[in-house]
Every structure is written in structure tokens, then in C-alpha cells.
């Protein structure tokens, strides 16, 4: 959270976290394409091995003011490959919420589990309480033929009571449901804190 008094804005950061090629970038590209141009900032794209790191910000007017400030959300993806640990940690610094994107394909569970573990480690190192920190889970690639049943994904990952959404980011299904849940969770946490 960063309060910009000069502009009357509260900047809130949401990071899309997950294994390489799980669909984080596809989520952000879909959101960016459907956000009115006058409300969004520039899309920044950095090429990394296998995938890209994306970020952009946008003013969210529907959600109402937070502590009398206009909420501006910054959305980031992290590079998913194992060796980009410092980049992921840097991106998670100052984050207000995380969307964990799960690749539903049967052969990707080890990567999902490793990614979840590193997310938890980073958040703990950054001083967050995992019990209260807003994490939303997206089961992506539900349209693919080898997608595991949701019950199996829930069993393999320590999701607990966190909000979960099924999605096919490439088709746009579930993308905004996930984002809205994350924004609401972040705003609720900020309202509790101020």
C-alpha cells in the first residue's frame, strides 16, 4: 500500500504468482485489454526465459473510495522459472494481495506445489501472516482435456478456506471473478487496518 496524498490515491498491489506457463500473463493481458484506456497506465512487459513479466496499473472506480482515497491497483506477474527467485521476491515486496494461478494439468502438480511453497516462504520472509494475508486461488486451464478434478487440486495444495475460482484465462473465463475477489479481499484488509 502506498498513499499518494498529492493525487488523493491509495496504490494497492496485487501479484499474480504461480509456476511458469500457468497462465499469469494471460490473465493480465485479458484484464488489460478490457480495461478502459483512460483508466489504465502503460503495460510494461519484460521478457524472461519461457514467459514474460507484466505489470500495469488502473484506477478502480466501481469499488468506491478507501479511507476517502481513490484506489489504484497495480497488477504484476512474477517470472515462474525456479531461478528467478530474487525477481519474485522483489515483486512481492509491498504487495497487498496475491492471486495464485494453478495450472490444472495433471503433469504440472509438482511445479504448482513448488511454486506454492516458494510463495509462502517469500511472504513469511516479508513479514506477512499467511492466515490473514489475502490470497485468492485460480484453477486455470479448466478447458484442457487433462485437467485434474478440482477436488484433487484442493487436496494437493494447502488452500484451506481461501477463495477459489475455476478459469480458462485464454478464453477469459473466470479472469474477472478472480480479480474482483482479490481486489475485494485487499480492500477489506486495508479497511480493517486503517
Amino acid at each position: 500500500m502506498f498513499i499518494n496524498w498529492a493525487l488523493g490515491e491509495i496504490n494497492l498491489k496485487i501479484v499474480y504468482y504461480g509456476a511458469a506457463l500457468s497462465g499469469k500473463t494471460t490473465n493480465l493481458q485479458f484484464i488489460y485489454a478490457r480495461t478502459p484506456a483512460n483508466l489504465r497506465g502503460r503495460l510494461i512487459s519484460l521478457k524472461t526465459q519461457q514467459d514474460r513479466t507484466l505489470l500495469f496499473d488502473f484506477l478502480q472506480l466501481e469499488i468506491g473510495k478507501v479511507a476517502n482515497l481513490k484506489p489504484k491497483f497495480k497488477l504484476y506477474t512474477v517470472p515462474g522459472q525456479v531461478y528467478y527467485a530474487a525477481s519474485r521476491r522483489l515483486i512481492l515486496q509491498g504487495t497487498d494481495g496475491v492471486v495464485f494461478v494453478v495450472d490444472s494439468q495433471a503433469g504440472r502438480m509438482t511445479e504448482n506445489e513448488e511454486s506454492w511453497y516458494t510463495m509462502e516462504q517469500h511472504l513469511i520472509e516479508l513479514g506477512h501472516d499467511l492466515q490473514t494475508f489475502p490470497i485468492v486461488v485460480q484453477f486455470n486451464k479448466r478447458d484442457l482435456p487433462h485437467a485434474l478434478p478440482v477436488q484433487e487440486l484442493r487436496r494437493r495444495l494447502p488452500i484451506d478456506g481461501r477463495p477459489c475460482f475455476e478459469a480458462s484465462a485464454i478464453k477469459g473465463h473466470g479472469v474477472f471473478d478472480t480479480l474482483k475477489a482479490s481486489m475485494n479481499g485487499v480492500v477489506a484488509a486495508v479497511r480493517r487496518a486503517v
Binding site: 510494461i44 519484460l46 526465459q49 505489470l55 531461478y83 530474487a86 525477481s87 515483486i91
Partner: peptide, 19 residues
Amino acid sequence: VPPEELLLEAARRRDEQIG
């Protein structure tokens, strides 16, 4: 250039040097 772009690029370079 937005500062985030520069900082993320610096982090990417560092990770790729280490990796």
C-alpha cells in the same frame, strides 16, 4: 522509463547471472 521497468530488468539480469 517507469522505475518498475528498470528495477525488474535489473532483478532479471541478476537472476540470470546467478542462474
